Each structure stands twice: as C-alpha cells, then as structure tokens.
Amino acid sequence: MTSLERPLPLPTEPLLSLDGISLSFGGVKAIADISFDVRQGEICALIGPNGAGKSSLLNVINGVYRPQQGTVTFDGTGSRRMSSHDAARRGIARTFQNIALFRRMSVLDNVLTGRNLHRGSTWLEQTFRVGRARRDEATQRRYAEVVIEALDLQRVRDSVVGTLSYGVQKRVELARALAAEPRLLLLDEPMAGMNADEKRAMAGFIVDANEQFGVTVVLIEHDIGVVMDLSDHIVVLDYGKKIADGSPAEVRVDPGVLAAYLGTRH
C-alpha cells in the first residue's frame, strides 16, 4: 500500500468528548468507563479485537444506545443521550458495517437522500413541485454533484446502485453521509471486505473528505496498516475497556496493544 501517513495536526479544541461512558446489556458490560477526546479536524481510529465494544461506542455517540453512565459532549454541549435524529440535526453522520443503500435507486438519488435535513421546502411543495420546491431541488442537486465529483462517482451517477461493485457501493454510502454536511462523520468498518486496491482508494477518499469538507472522522478499521497511515489519533479497546489512546507512533509500540491486538490475540 502506498503510504498515506499524515503530518501531525495542529492542536485544536475537542469537537467530541466522552467522559466515563459505560454501557451494559443485561448483565454483560459492553463498555466500561471509557473517556477520550476527538479534536476538530482529526481522523480518529477505534481499533481492537472483535467484541471490544467499538460499534457499541459509535452507537452511543450518535444516539442509538443510551449509556448507563457517563456523558457525551459534542460541540460544547454535553448529554447522557441524544436521539439519532438530534445527532443528525446537530451534524453527526454515520455509516454502518453492512451497506444500507437504496439498491433500486440511482447513485445520485441515494446521495440526495443525505440532503433531507437541508431542504427548505415542505413535503407538500416537493410532491406537487410548487412554491420553493424547484429552487430547493436545484440547490440540493448542486451540492450532491459536488460530493459525487469529490468521490469520483461521476461516471456512475445515473447507475442503479444494486448493479455496482461492492467497493463502489461503499463509496456511495460515504458520499451519502458527506451530503448531509456533517461536522462529525462516524464510519463503521468502511473498508471491510475490500481488496488492497479498494482499501487504498477508500483511504484516500476518507483523507480527501476530511481535508476538502473539513469533517472530523471517527472510524473503526481492522487493517492496522491502513489505520497507522490514515489516522491522526488512535483509541484502542479490549473487552470494553480503553487500553491505549494516542498517536499512531505511540500506539504502535504500546505493550498493552501489542499483547491484546497486534500480537497473538485477535
């Protein structure tokens, strides 16, 4: 893989802070007293063995799960839980491990669904194409086209999503999330199931999105080579606990990480 190693970012204020987050399902503790900050403009990776609590933590951040303890602070406002709708409205977008696109719709139409919170016309105006609907639709399409170009999807913009390769569909999913103009983008295994070339391309698109759109990224990824090149900051989880938190250079040599994740236990 061609190195994407990033320069050290300039210090900024945290956009996201987790303080003492604990989450249990029945008697099973999925997350135990986890705290860390994600600074504005950085790419932060969550890594750890399967079952470490990574996806559960993303679900806490965007309001799918409510922790029993702890506070999530986003853009200076702390709460035990936001609803998923509130998280989206405040600027948090999310992709999932499994592709969740509208398979019978075109790429453009899928990306346009990410613009729903930015529409200025009512559903009635949109249905009958009256009032603000036409101008609003033109505005949303212009932004969708910007995202499509940024992710190099122009040649498939009118293609039905279900006919596209897995790697391209994952890119469409990223485009739809970016179309929402998020401040924080949560990516749950955006490169799962990809070959080396597809991973290299997706890593480049994530970096481009971070730089071009100014979006802060928190991602889950199992390919350590990708993580080390892509990330400004890495948080390592093991059995629901945080065992490391630092730069790629710091995490690479952390004894706890080597034992729990990079060594013999996967």
Rank of each mutant, 00 (worst) to 15 (best):
V111W: 03
R134I: 10
D136H: 09
V161I: 00
Q169S: 11
H118D: 03
K170D: 10
S121M: 00
N116I: 12
E145H: 13
R155M: 09
N110K: 11
T122V: 00
G131S: 05
G162C: 03
G114L: 02
Y166E: 09
R115Y: 07
A138K: 14
V146F: 05
V160P: 07
G120T: 02
T163S: 04
E125D: 01
F128C: 00
D152S: 15
S159R: 13
V147P: 11
R157P: 06
L117N: 13
R135C: 02
N110F: 08
E149N: 08
E137I: 10
S159P: 10
D158I: 03
T139F: 00
V156S: 08
E125H: 05
R119W: 04
K170R: 15
N116Q: 13
T127C: 08
V111N: 08
T139H: 10
L153I: 08
R135L: 11
R119N: 05
E145G: 10
R119V: 10
G114W: 04
R171K: 14
L164H: 07
L112H: 02
G120P: 09
T122D: 00
W123V: 14
T139K: 12
V111P: 02
L124Y: 11
V130M: 15
Q169W: 11
V146S: 07
A133P: 04
G120R: 12
V146W: 03
Q126A: 15
L164W: 04
A138C: 07
A133N: 11
A133F: 00
V147A: 01
H118G: 09
R135W: 11
R119C: 07
E145V: 13
L124E: 12
R115E: 06
N116S: 14
V168W: 06
T139P: 01
V107L: 03
R129T: 00
I148R: 08
V111C: 00
D109F: 02
R132M: 01
G131T: 04
V130Y: 09
R171H: 09
G114C: 01
V160F: 00
Q140I: 13
F128H: 06
W123I: 11
Q154V: 12
R141K: 15
R142W: 10
R157I: 09
H118S: 05
R134W: 06
S159W: 07
T163P: 01
R142P: 04
V172H: 03
Q140K: 03
S165P: 13
L151Q: 11
